[in-house]
Amino acid sequence: MRLPAGVAHEIGAAVGAALDNVERHCGSQTRAWVLLEEEAGTVTVSVRDDGPGIPAGRLTEAAREGRLGVAQSIRGRMADLGGTVEIVSAAGEGTEVELRLKVTG
């Protein structure tokens, strides 16, 4: 599947932002994996790390305090493209960010 250059660039930037978060918030021993999939017209990129995880409520709290790092650079970009972002995390379980974009045609 071929994506328009602008779309590919934005997805790449969102993945970069997710990886930046791993680097910023997790220890140097933390590993991260990126899985890119394409199926039935949907592109899915998963960024998972085995770091300490994000404590429940931390992201909404950060957004309320006006720290929009994750919200802006990941959610904002994907929303602009018409895609979705799912962030799954629990203390001790690492963090998984899943970006999805339905590409028609």
Partner: peptide, 8 residues
């Protein structure tokens, strides 16, 4: 397989 690919 997806979970293996994500490093679990």
């Amino acid at each position: 397989l997806r979970l293996v690919a994500k490093g679990l």
